[in-house]
């Protein structure tokens, strides 16, 4: 079973890379973009048939390694 995780910076945490990308896009002529937040995407293949169980396991992984909860939020999809 494949579980997907998106990790993003928490609201209010400075994202200098996102800002640099935004400025570049603005410079390229995409003038209607207000904000870009860069994040990370994980695709995890879990050897488990029970979806709830697999997701619980991935949630544990997020808390312990995949995200740093001081600055990041995670979303399991």
């Amino acid at each position: 079973m494949k579980i997907k995780v998106i990790v993003t910076l928490k609201k209010g945490v400075l994202d200098p890379q996102g800002k640099a990308i935004l400025q570049t896009l603005n410079g390229m002529g995409y003038s209607n973009i207000d904000e870009i937040r860069q994040g990370k995407f994980f695709e995890i293949s879990v050897n488990e048939d029970n979806e709830a169980k697999a997701k619980a396991q991935v949630e544990d992984m997020c808390k312990k390694l995949l995200a740093n909860l001081v600055i990041e939020d995670y979303k399991i999809i």
């Binding site: 400075l14 200098p16 740093n68 600055i71």
Partner: peptide
């Protein structure tokens, strides 16, 4: 900081 022995985190430098 990642072990939790110290609080906080070291983020990317402000001016990249």
């Amino acid at each position: 900081t990642e072990t939790g022995l110290l609080p906080g985190i070291l983020q990317q430098n402000k001016y990249l």
